[in-house]
Nucleic acid binder design. Structure first.
Length: 670
DNA sequence: CTGATTATTTTTTTT
DNA sequence: AAATAATCAG
C-alpha cells in the first residue's frame, strides 16, 4: 500500500494487466456479461433480460473489483431484498474468498437504517429510533387525525389507511398532494388543505418521538446525502463502487439517493430489465432506466440477451407476451436450451378443477423425479391460492406461501414488539399506547393521559408510579410495567434477554386477551428463538420490521418444518427466483389483470409485465391455467368489479397462441 | 370505559 | 362482503 494520504484505485492501471487473477473471467462469462463485469470507472447500465444471468454479472463484478484491489468495504450492493444481497455475497465468496462477505449490501431501506443509526445525529435523529411498519404508521395517523378533530367535519374525511396511501404515494413519486389526489382520489380533492395539514402534523409527531416509517428512512437518507456537502462527500467516498440491482423498480427518491452517492466518484453499475418493472404502485419509474444516461452522463449501456434459464419454447412464448408493450429497450432474448415441452394452456371447468390439476400434476412430476423444491405456483394476489391451499393440505403436499400476510403483523406479535420497542425508544408513543391499552381497566382516555406524562412530559416510566395513580385499581399493573421497562432496559441486555423479560411480563396479560392463546404462545416462543441470533435488541427489532419473515416464521434453522416443500407465491414475491416447473393460476380477466388495474393503459401494461415476470420464472415446464369461474367472482357486491369473465386478455392477445403453446383438455372428474 | 348498533368506505402488489 | 368509523346504551 502506498503511504500517500490519498487512496486511488485505477482499474485499468498497467499493473492490472500483469496481475494474476484467480478467476478466468473470459472463460466463465459470455462476451456481454464480461463487458459488464469488467466495466471500468464511471457509470454503466446493464440491461439484462429475464434469466440472462443478472446475479452472475453482479457476483462476478464483486469478485473482479476485489481482485483489482478494491477493498470490499467500499463496495455497496443495493438489492431488492436482503436475502438477494446475502446470496450474491455468498456466491461471490464461493468464486473468490471470504473477503466478499465484507461487501456492504442490502435493500435501500436496510442501508438507510444503518446509515441513519450511525450518522442520523447530523439531522437530529438519535440512534434509537423506531421503525414504523404500515400498521404503526396508521396508528400514528389516526391519533393525529383525531387530535386535529377532522373526524367531526361535515364532509367525510379519508380514513387512516387511505391517508397513509396518499402520503406514501406523494413521497415516493415526488408529486404534490394536489396531483396525487387528482389522479387517484378525486373524491377528496376539496380536502387537499386539510390532508396537507394532517401530513405535516404527522411528520412533526413522528419527528418528536423518534419514529420513522418506511418512507422516512429513504427521505432522511436523502437529506443526509444531499443536505450537507461534507457529509455527502464523506459518505459517497465510503462507497467507491456502487451497484444496484433491479434498477427498473427504483423510484425517484431512490434515484436522488443514488445520484448523491455517486457524485464524488461517478462509479455506479446498475442492472435492470424494463420488461420486469412491477412496482409502479410504490412510485417505481422505468424512466430511471430509460434516462440513466441523462442522470449519469457518459454512461455506457450493455445489453445481455442470452438466456440461461428457460428452454426455447418457453422463451418463444414469453417473448410474445411483451411484443405489444409500448415504451421499451428493444431486446430479443434467445436460448440454446433444447426442450420439447411447450408451455401448456389449460381451461379447467372451475377453481376446484384448477386446484385438482395442480395437485395431481405436482404429484406426477415428483414421481418423475422433480423435487417439490423445484416447483412453484404463482398468482397475482394472496387470496387467489386459498382454494389450492385446501386442496394441497388434503393431498398432503407440503407447501410454503410467500407474500401476503406476514407473521409480524398478527396482533399478539405486535403486542410483544411494542413492549420491546418502548425499552429501546422510551419516546415511542405508539408502542406505549398499545402496551397500556392491554392493561385491564385502561382504555383510550387513561392510556392517553399516561402517554402524555411518559412521553410528552418526558417523565419516562417513572410516571407510571405517580402518586396520583395510587388509588386506581390498575396501579399495581402499572408498577409492574415500570419494573419491566427498567429491568429490560438495563445496560447491554441482549435481544433474547429482553425478549424473555417481555414475555414474562406480558404473558399473563396476553393470556387474558386471546382465547386461542396456545397457538399464539407457540408463535411467541419461536420469535424468542429468532431473537437469539441478535446481539442488540435494536437490531432485532429493525430487522423484523424491514425484512419480516413470512407466514410461518420458522425459517432456515427451524428444524421442525418439512425440508421439502412446494412454493406458493405472489408474483411480486417471486421476483428474481426460478423453478424447473411453474404454474400460473387464474389467468382470467379480473384476476390477471386485476380488476382494480383496468383504469388506464399504464396500469394494464404493468399487469402484462407481471404476467411476463411470472412466465419467465420457468425453466422447463410452464402451466398456464385459465379456469372458468362460474359464477364470476364478485368483489364487494359492486357489479363494476367482476372477475372471471373469460380468459385473460394477455392470453388472447398473444400472436398465434396455438403455435407456441400446447392446449390440454381436462377429463371431467376432479 | 366497554360493548353493541348503525353508517359508511374500501377493496392488490411491498419496503 | 368485510373492515372501520361514528353513535348510542348501560
Amino acid at each position: 500500500m502506498p503511504e500517500s494520504g490519498k487512496k486511488t484505485y485505477k482499474l485499468h492501471a498497467p499493473a492490472a494487466a500483469a496481475r494474476h487473477f484467480a478467476i478466468d473471467y473470459a472463460a466463465e462469462l459470455n462476451p456481454q456479461q464480461l463487458e459488464a463485469v469488467q466495466a471500468g470507472e464511471g457509470a454503466t447500465l446493464v440491461i439484462a433480460g429475464a434469466g440472462t444471468g443478472k446475479t452472475r454479472v453482479l457476483t462476478y463484478r464483486v469478485a473482479w473489483l476485489i481482485e483489482n484491489g478494491v477493498p470490499p468495504e467500499e463496495i455497496l450492493l443495493l438489492t431488492f431484498s436482503r436475502k438477494a444481497a446475502q446470496e450474491m455475497m455468498r456466491r461471490a465468496a464461493g468464486l473468490l474468498d471470504d473477503r466478499c462477505q465484507r461487501v456492504q449490501g442490502g435493500t435501500f431501506h436496510g442501508y438507510a437504517n444503518r446509515m441513519l443509526r450511525r450518522y442520523g445525529n447530523v439531522l437530529g435523529i438519535g440512534p434509537n429510533f423506531t421503525i414504523l411498519d404500515r400498521g404503526d404508521l396508521e396508528d400514528a395517523i389516526q391519533f393525529v387525525r383525531n387530535k386535529l378533530g377532522f373526524g367531526e367535519a361535515e364532509k367525510r374525511f379519508p380514513k387512516k389507511g387511505t391517508l397513509a396511501a396518499i402520503f406514501s404515494r406523494s413521497v415516493n413519486t415526488g408529486l404534490p398532494y394536489r396531483k396525487v389526489l387528482d389522479e387517484e382520489y378525486p373524491q377528496y380533492l376539496e380536502l387537499e388543505e386539510e390532508i396537507q395539514k394532517v401530513a405535516e402534523a404527522v411528520a412533526e409527531y413522528k419527528k418528536a418521538r423518534g419514529l420513522l416509517d418506511y418512507d422516512d428512512l429513504l427521505l432522511r437518507l436523502r437529506d443526509l446525502v444531499t443536505r450537507d456537502e461534507k457529509t455527502a462527500d464523506f459518505i459517497g467516498r465510503g462507497h467507491r463502487y456502487l451497484m444496484v440491482d433491479e434498477m427498473q423498480d427504483t423510484n425517484r427518491l431512490q434515484m436522488d439517493i443514488l445520484r448523491a452517492l455517486a457524485r464524488p466518484h461517478g462509479n455506479i453499475l446498475a442492472v435492470g430489465d424494463d420488461f420486469q418493472s412491477i412496482y409502479s404502485f410504490r412510485g417505481a419509474e422505468i424512466r430511471n432506466m430509460m434516462d440513466f444516461s441523462d442522470a449519469f452522463p457518459g454512461a455506457r449501456v450493455v445489453k445481455v440477451e442470452e438466456n440461461y434459464r428457460s428452454s426455447r419454447p418457453i422463451l418463444d412464448f414469453t417473448n410474445r407476451i411483451i411484443e405489444s408493450a409500448p415504451e421499451k429497450y428493444e431486446k430479443k432474448l434467445f436460448s440454446s436450451i433444447e426442450h420439447a415441452q411447450k408451455p401448456v394452456l389449460l381451461s379447467p371447468a372451475s377453481e376446484m378443477h384448477q386446484s385438482a390439476f395442480v395437485c395431481q400434476r405436482v404429484l406426477e412430476l415428483r414421481e418423475e423425479g422433480v423435487p417439490l423444491e423445484r416447483m412453484a405456483v404463482l398468482f397475482r394476489t394472496g387470496f387467489h391460492s386459498n382454494d389450492l391451499e385446501l386442496a394441497l393440505t388434503r393431498a398432503r403436499i407440503p407447501f410454503r406461501k410467500f407474500g401476503g400476510f406476514k407473521f409480524i403483523e398478527t396482533s399478539h406479535v405486535k403486542d410483544v414488539f411494542a413492549h420491546l420497542r418502548i425499552v429501546v425508544n422510551p419516546f415511542d408513543a405508539i408502542s406505549w399506547n398499545r402496551v397500556l391499552l392491554l392493561i385491564q381497566g385502561v382504555g383510550p382516555a387513561a392510556a392517553n393521559r399516561l402517554v402524555e406524562a411518559i412521553v410528552e412530559k418526558r417523565q419516562g416510566a417513572a410516571a407510571l408510579r405517580d402518586a396520583s395513580l395510587a388509588k386506581k385499581k390498575y396501579a399495581g399493573d402499572l408498577r409492574a410495567l415500570a419494573d419491566f421497562t427498567e429491568k429490560a432496559g438495563g445496560e447491554h441486555r441482549s435481544a433474547s434477554e429482553a425478549m424473555e423479560a417481555a414475555l414474562k411480563y406480558a404473558e399473563p396479560i396476553l393470556k387474558e386477551h386471546y382465547d386461542d392463546w396456545r397457538k399464539r404462545r407457540d408463535d411467541l416462543q419461536s420469535l424468542a428463538v429468532v431473537s437469539e441470533r441478535y446481539e442488540k435488541l435494536g437490531d432485532f427489532l429493525a430487522d423484523m420490521t424491514l425484512d419480516p419473515p413470512g407466514e410461518d416464521l420458522v425459517e432456515e434453522d427451524g428444524g421442525d418444518k418439512e425440508d421439502e416443500f412446494l412454493t406458493l407465491s405472489t408474483i411480486h414475491s417471486a421476483k428474481g427466483l426460478e423453478w424447473q416447473t411453474v404454474f400460473v393460476l387464474s389467468l382470467v380477466e379480473g384476476y390477471l389483470p386485476s380488476a382494480q388495474s383496468l383504469g388506464s393503459d399504464k396500469q394494464i401494461d404493468e399487469e402484462r409485465r407481471l404476467f411476463y415476470v411470472a412466465a419467465t420464472r420457468a425453466e422447463r415446464n410452464l402451466y398456464l391455467l385459465a379456469p372458468h369461474l362460474d359464477p364470476p367472482a364478485r368483489f364487494w357486491g359492486n357489479p363494476d368489479f367482476q372477475a372471471g369473465h373469460g380468459p385473460s386478455r394477455f392470453l388472447r392477445e398473444i400472436r398465434e397462441v396455438e403455435d407456441c403453446t400446447e392446449i390440454w383438455n381436462l377429463e371431467e372428474d376432479p
